[in-house]
Amino acid sequence: MKTRLLFTGALLFLAGIFSSSAQTETRLGAMVAYGTEIENPGIGVTAEFPILEDLTIAPGFIYYLPKDESGISINWWEINGNANYYLVNTESLGFYGLAGLNYSHVGVDYDGSGFGGASMSVSDGRFGLNLGAGANFNIGSSITPFAEAKYVIIDGGQLVIGAGVKFDL
């Protein structure tokens, strides 16, 4: 909970810093995602802060729904800091390549059923790199649907496919 509150505060702070120098719209959005390594859906938030005409900074957070199998609970979340470079930016479509940093955190809890009844909890966090592409679909309002696919280069690697909406601020 503290992580989500801190992240939301950081997004709002960054929005204030970059909105005064933006050439295009600053956006804040929500998304659903699917990670191929955890094999579970997630929910997240994202933002876009323009810094140059075709370049935005795009922080994001995804929390994957907890996964419970045979007494083992897996909790996974990730924080991303990407740079989006717009290759195509027309009135109806904005297509961008993305690259950035990723921090993924995985927690595993074992409830102790079987094997002597001992409970166990471990967690680990890793830094990785994001490479991918996305598209914003301009529908003529302050709401912009988007879709994105990225590969997280990290131990085991993970393809993350997401979609959602961004709101112009």
Results as ranks from 00 to 15, higher is better:
2 K>W: 07
3 T>K: 10
5 L>D: 13
5 L>K: 15
6 L>D: 05
7 F>A: 09
7 F>R: 12
10 A>E: 01
11 L>P: 14
13 F>K: 13
14 L>Y: 02
14 L>G: 14
14 L>M: 11
15 A>W: 05
16 G>W: 00
18 F>N: 06
19 S>W: 01
20 S>Y: 05
20 S>T: 13
21 S>R: 13
21 S>G: 14
21 S>E: 09
22 A>F: 01
22 A>P: 10
23 Q>E: 12
25 E>W: 03
25 E>H: 08
26 T>Q: 00
26 T>P: 06
27 R>I: 01
28 L>A: 06
29 G>A: 08
30 A>S: 08
32 V>H: 03
32 V>Y: 05
32 V>C: 06
33 A>W: 06
33 A>T: 01
34 Y>D: 04
34 Y>F: 08
35 G>W: 05
37 E>M: 03
37 E>R: 15
38 I>K: 09
38 I>D: 01
38 I>S: 11
39 E>Q: 13
40 N>E: 09
44 G>N: 06
44 G>Y: 08
51 I>E: 07
53 E>C: 06
53 E>W: 02
54 D>V: 10
55 L>W: 03
56 T>E: 06
56 T>V: 09
58 A>M: 07
60 G>M: 00
60 G>E: 01
61 F>T: 01
62 I>E: 00
65 L>A: 10
65 L>G: 10
66 P>K: 15
67 K>S: 14
68 D>N: 11
68 D>H: 04
69 E>F: 04
79 I>C: 06
79 I>N: 09
81 G>A: 13
83 A>P: 12
83 A>L: 13
84 N>D: 08
84 N>K: 15
85 Y>K: 15
85 Y>I: 06
86 Y>N: 12
88 V>F: 10
91 E>T: 10
92 S>L: 11
93 L>N: 00
95 F>I: 13
97 G>T: 03
99 A>D: 04
102 N>R: 05
104 S>A: 11
105 H>S: 12
107 G>A: 11
107 G>T: 02
109 D>K: 15
109 D>S: 14
109 D>M: 05
110 Y>F: 09
111 D>L: 07
111 D>I: 09
113 S>T: 11
115 F>T: 05
115 F>P: 06
116 G>Y: 02
116 G>H: 04
118 A>V: 10
119 S>G: 11
120 M>T: 13
120 M>N: 15
121 S>E: 10
121 S>T: 08
121 S>F: 00
122 V>R: 12
122 V>S: 09
123 S>L: 05
124 D>R: 11
124 D>I: 02
124 D>Y: 05
126 R>H: 10
126 R>P: 00
128 G>L: 10
129 L>A: 01
129 L>M: 09
129 L>T: 07
130 N>C: 04
137 F>C: 00
139 I>T: 12
139 I>V: 14
140 G>A: 03
141 S>P: 03
142 S>H: 08
143 I>F: 11
143 I>P: 07
143 I>T: 09
144 T>M: 11
146 F>R: 14
147 A>D: 01
148 E>Y: 01
149 A>V: 14
149 A>W: 04
149 A>P: 02
151 Y>T: 06
151 Y>V: 11
152 V>R: 15
153 I>E: 00
154 I>R: 15
154 I>V: 12
154 I>K: 15
155 D>E: 14
155 D>Y: 12
156 G>E: 00
156 G>F: 03
158 Q>C: 03
159 L>C: 04
161 I>N: 07
161 I>D: 04
164 G>P: 12
165 V>K: 15
165 V>L: 15
166 K>C: 03
169 L>H: 07
